Simulated assay, not measured.
Amino acid sequence: MDMLLEGAIAFMLIAGGIFAFIGSLGLTHLKDFYMRLHGPSKTTTLGVGCTLIGSLIFFSLENGPVVQELLITVFAFITAPVSAHMLAKSALHHKLKPDPRTRGNPQELERDRPKHTVEEAPQGDSPLP
């Protein structure tokens, strides 16, 4: 039984290290802010989560149930996507230019999109758009 749990701990630590490494590579090698945002918000969060779950299993074997690592993992999984979303909204608000190779340029999509479609066109004297 101990060997199985040690294998699970080792797997979680190795997976956490691999995810964190891939996220760090994405942060350093991608071209613009919008692309770089995916490295820390996705893969590094998984890396930290795997490492904390491995720590949770290890310290639960020695001292009984440990809640601190579980709370840290939940907090990291909640706050990292929210902070990445707020950074992306701030970059869009400040009209940060993306790399020309980025597909789906948000400023171009907003500019080229019609204000209303036929189905959404306002009817009569309605103050709603």
Score class of each variant (00 low, 15 high):
residue 15 A to D: 02
residue 99 D to P: 11
residue 20 A to P: 03
residue 29 H to I: 10
residue 128 L to V: 13
residue 101 R to A: 15
residue 58 F to M: 09
residue 34 Y to Q: 08
residue 1 M to T: 08
residue 7 G to Y: 04
residue 108 E to W: 09
residue 52 L to A: 01
residue 20 A to V: 02
residue 33 F to A: 04
residue 55 S to E: 03
residue 44 T to A: 04
residue 53 I to D: 01
residue 39 G to V: 01
residue 14 I to N: 03
residue 91 A to G: 13
residue 2 D to L: 10
residue 53 I to Q: 00
residue 117 T to H: 11
residue 95 K to G: 02
residue 114 P to T: 13
residue 23 G to Y: 04
residue 65 P to E: 06
residue 123 Q to N: 12
residue 49 G to W: 00
residue 37 L to W: 00
residue 9 I to F: 11
residue 75 F to W: 07
residue 3 M to N: 15
residue 124 G to C: 11
residue 49 G to F: 03
residue 91 A to Q: 13
residue 22 I to R: 06
residue 35 M to L: 09
residue 69 E to L: 08
residue 10 A to R: 11
residue 6 E to I: 07
residue 43 T to R: 02
residue 52 L to Q: 01
residue 72 I to R: 04
residue 96 L to N: 03
residue 104 G to I: 13
residue 42 K to M: 13
residue 29 H to Y: 07
residue 112 D to H: 01
residue 78 I to N: 02
residue 66 V to L: 05
residue 53 I to F: 14
residue 120 E to R: 10
residue 113 R to P: 01
residue 95 K to F: 09
residue 119 E to A: 12
residue 64 G to I: 07
residue 70 L to D: 05
residue 71 L to F: 07
residue 89 K to D: 09
residue 45 T to R: 01
residue 88 A to L: 08
residue 101 R to V: 09
residue 104 G to D: 13
residue 14 I to S: 05
residue 117 T to K: 10
residue 38 H to G: 02
residue 66 V to C: 10
residue 11 F to A: 12
residue 42 K to V: 12
residue 108 E to R: 15
residue 93 H to F: 13
residue 81 P to L: 09
residue 76 A to Q: 00
residue 68 Q to Y: 13
residue 78 I to M: 09
residue 19 F to Q: 04
residue 47 G to N: 05
residue 46 L to A: 02
residue 31 K to D: 15
residue 109 L to P: 01
residue 1 M to S: 10
residue 100 P to C: 03
residue 96 L to S: 10
residue 71 L to M: 08
residue 78 I to H: 00
residue 86 M to R: 14
residue 38 H to C: 00
residue 11 F to K: 05
residue 113 R to Y: 10
residue 4 L to S: 10
residue 47 G to D: 03
residue 32 D to W: 04
residue 74 V to S: 05
residue 6 E to Q: 14
residue 22 I to K: 02
residue 50 C to A: 15
residue 111 R to I: 09
residue 111 R to C: 04
residue 60 S to M: 06
residue 30 L to Y: 12
residue 56 L to P: 01
residue 103 R to D: 10
residue 41 S to T: 15
residue 115 K to V: 12
residue 118 V to P: 03
residue 82 V to N: 12
residue 122 P to T: 07
residue 21 F to W: 09
residue 45 T to L: 09
residue 67 V to D: 01
residue 111 R to G: 02
residue 128 L to N: 05
residue 45 T to V: 12
